[in-house]
């Protein structure tokens, strides 16, 4: 199977801290790939380097055969990205933001208008009208960000924490959209630290901790017959409370 996203020997250091310590990763085309890891594991750093937002110290990344760092135009045309903790151009309204992203991607204005209307309807954002994105709620911002990533029908979607701060109704909606997208031949890689979401959605998963891949494969390979949470806690090495501390609570 071809790789939609291939990562080789990716390294990133911040001052003295090694955030990503040599990651190799293959995301098969047509897969729904979950990147799991505790806070500070290097998920966002890895994904940022994979989409060309952050220059790696070492290593290479290919998106459907296009090198992200030597052939950015080819790679970026196939990519849809929803970064986390990154502001949108939030002084625009939802529709304006979609039009902006569409025109930046070189789309036909008529197609942009039609898709923007559909996306705003489906994601229940049409009611926001001329409200600026900066005044949206956190969940609405995630949804308009996702709409921007989907607008140009990319072949690979890279989503950083797409379900964070999203209410259950919107989360179900987003899941539905993503599953349809994968069924239509697209590839999704998303980061999360919520096991249930990954177990319910993903065909493949990887567990990232301390800047390195600890487990990778199909969901069943990673789980090895146990629950994903057990595997995750074992791999990451979390502590379990003994009940002695915090007695004053």
């Amino acid at each position: 199977m071809d790789s939609a996203l291939a990562v080789r020997g990716l390294v990133k250091r911040f001052e003295t801290v090694v955030a990503v310590a040599g990651i190799d990763l293959d995301v098969p085309a047509g897969s729904f790939f979950g990147l799991l890891g505790p806070n500070g594991a290097g998920k966002t750093t890895t994904l940022s380097m994979a989409v060309g937002l952050l220059r790696p110290d070492e290593g290479r990344v290919w998106v459907l055969g296009h090198d992200v760092w030597s052939d950015p135009t080819g790679a970026k045309a196939l990519l849809g990205v929803l970064p986390d903790g990154v502001r949108l151009f939030d002084r625009l309204t939802g529709a304006e933001l979609l039009a902006y992203h569409g025109l930046l991607r070189g789309m036909d204005p008529a197609v942009i208008d039609q898709r923007a209307r559909e996306l705003l309807d489906v994601l229940a954002l049409a009611g926001a009208g001329r409200t600026l994105v900066v005044d949206y709620s956190a969940g609405m911002k995630k949804k308009i960000g996702l709409a921007c990533a989907l607008l140009h029908a990319p072949r690979l979607l890279v989503l950083d924490e797409p379900f964070e701060a999203v209410d259950p109704v919107s989360a179900a909606l987003i899941r539905d959209i993503l599953q349809r997208y994968v069924a239509g031949g697209g590839t999704v890689i998303f980061s999360s630290h919520v096991m249930e979401v990954v177990e319910r959605l993903c065909s493949h998963a990887a567990i990232l901790a301390d800047g390195a891949i600890k487990r990778v494969g199909t969901l069943d390979e990673v789980r090895g017959g146990r629950s994903l949470e057990d595997v995750f806690v074992e791999v990451v090495g979390g502590r379990t409370a003994t009940g002695e501390e915090l007695a004053w609570l």
Binding site: A95, R117, G129
Partner: peptide, 18 residues
């Protein structure tokens, strides 16, 4: 928040609004 009250409805296509 500076936009109080109900949101004004948008008119025209997304591109024309931008």
């Amino acid at each position: 928040p500076t936009t109080a009250g109900p949101a004004r409805a948008a008119r025209g296509g997304a591109v024309d609004q931008l």
